[in-house]
Nucleic acid binder design. Structure first.
Lengths: 198, 198, 198, 198
DNA sequence: GATGAATGAGTGTTCATTCAT
DNA sequence: CATGAATGAACACTCATTCAT
């Protein structure tokens, strides 16, 4: 599992990762083989290993992609001029939408991120991912205009939203059985409750 | 993949599942092979299949085990006579402790649970797991003496706590870097913040 | 694969072999497990090995059974007072019926039979099977009142009938495609042709 | 069990199938493992799966091979200019020789052949096998200059020859015991008898 | 006499990865 | 640069058979 810094994404990396993405979403990461990725990307299997060290690095690359998407999503659904509640719901629904579209990437959001960039063994993607996470965090802090305990508050709220989205998605059937509410209705209610708590 | 109700755990099932548990925690479920489980449990591989239908059933058995543990944990750290905050922190720290000890089981908490028990294809363990989940839920409802919107509130809070614990555990390094706080200190602060929100 | 002479079939051997027979017919020999036989026969797996040395001996026992059936079948469908053609068709249709009912046993008819009974390593069943074959042969010889070259004629005709039945059964689809005739119609025509040849 | 048409036999397919052939003859198809085939062919087990979809396809490939051999054998031992008896004996002895050399393939001759080529799920080999069978059939029809009932006659005779060869081979010991004749002598006598019947 | 318990020895198949060309 | 070819290492699961009790 040797990790080294690699030159930045060429057109090939993009093409390969896009193929991988489609397959990951369609059938899950574990069940997607490098062969399938190669075929869909229009390369030979061996060529994949020219542009990515291994399957893991492809995943890493896509984690970055997912972070970029979330950021975009959040930026486009929030605004200085909106009310706090509108903004809060904007963030929530960005994440929700994201989880619906890329349920598997959502997991990544809550996954460990390599922060020890002093070592030389990391993928460039990991560094980039980290930085985008930072940007989102900074953006949210400003958005909610929090004065003190900024970090912890943003972190806690963010974590709670993620927790609620994840749990609700997984237990949808159970919720339906207990409350009769659809997943969609239930989660909006949860978001509102969460906002009131703030 | 025939699933049928099976007679309850014998001493062998216990021994095997304990071996599986150790390995699952140490190296993850996917990477643990039935051979390894057999070896550690002191049985031959074939014998494993005498006591469990397949690997999946071992997992299912352990999910139940994990639910039982959480329940015990929560019961022993909360009480009618405590203040609301004490109880809240009790629940939080139960889950936290649990996640520290069995990080992999914690995932199970947020995992889909088979609820369609009308079908005949499920393991007894799955049904049992569901029921313990119900018991915890009922207990928490009473504990916090919530009058209306009970279900949604308990669910939201529970999800938030899980989200916070999970995210904090995964991003511990990042948090340290940003705030200088240890994971332990940071998460206690998060719990308190969460309580204030209620 | 040690073979030793064994004491004659008790009631248990009968019960076990009957279970095996049902399963062999239903799902083939290879796909039938000793466990299944034991279960259907109402014994424990280990008990099977008390009454039969191994799976092979069960098969051997059933081969004998099949021989007995064929003999009965032939005896009941031929008679001194019938015409030669009637008798010939009787034999043919006995074998045909037999093949339809126990396609898998039919193979046995054309299988090697242990004739070296001087050695001590054979199953009693094998000896018995051999003797019934002899009886059938003797019966047919008398039936067709052949004077010279008896053995070879009976053997050749018998073999031809078997060959025709087997090939026709296996190539039924092909025959349908080529001639438009059903397997039943086609094989009766073959039998008649065979008789004319005699 | 996806079956698709594959590109034609390379040198590897030949090498692998030749190894498989030896093992199949020596110990039977069922008892031959893919590992053994790989070892004897000088490849790694995984490589076998590069050139054949699965074990079944190897068998299918060899069935074709066997059909080609029989055809050659028959063509080289019969001729327009020979007498009918010479030709008949030629066909018989072709099949006999073939059975001696590849007893296990001989079984294939009497086995079901996939005729439903409208479906897309078959191996190219299976189609080819079918076509060679057709060619043999056509050739024999012309050879014996049969006018009417051609199909049924050729089919019946062919089946009878196969039946006689198979039965005689399996019961050689028994025949020796009963007639004192060697298998070789006995079967030639059978062939002659068969010819006289025509 | 009957069996519960245990297992050795496979079995076909998959897949990420390497490397000579 | 790109890849065809090859494979090591697994992996979940099966089953006939044994033997102490």
């Amino acid at each position: 599992m040797a990790r080294r810094v690699k030159e930045e994404p060429s057109i090939h990396r993009k093409r390969i990762s896009e193929a991988a993405e489609k397959l990951f979403i369609r059938q899950g990461i574990e069940k997607t083989t490098v062969s399938q990725i190669a075929e869909l990307a229009g390369y030979s299997k061996a060529t994949i290993y020219v542009y990515f060290e291994n399957k893991e690095e492809i995943i890493s690359y896509l984690v970055l992609h997912s972070m970029e998407l979330i950021k975009k999503q959040i930026l486009s659904s929030t605004d200085d001029t909106y009310s706090d509640e509108e903004n809060f719901m904007g963030v929530c629904n960005s994440l929700l939408k994201y989880n619906k579209k890329y349920p598997m990437y959502f997991q990544f959001l809550q996954d460990t991120i390599n922060v020890d960039f002093s070592s030389e063994k990391y993928y460039q993607s990991e560094k980039d991912t980290y930085m985008i996470g930072e940007e989102i965090h900074t953006y949210l802090t400003k958005l909610f205009n929090l004065k003190d305990d900024t970090f912890i508050t943003v972190f806690t709220v963010w974590s709670s939203i993620c927790g609620v989205i994840q749990m609700t998605a997984k237990k949808a059937k159970y919720i339906k059985k207990q409350t009769g509410l659809s997943e969609t209705d239930f989660i909006q209610a949860e978001f509102r409750r969460l906002f009131k708590m703030l």
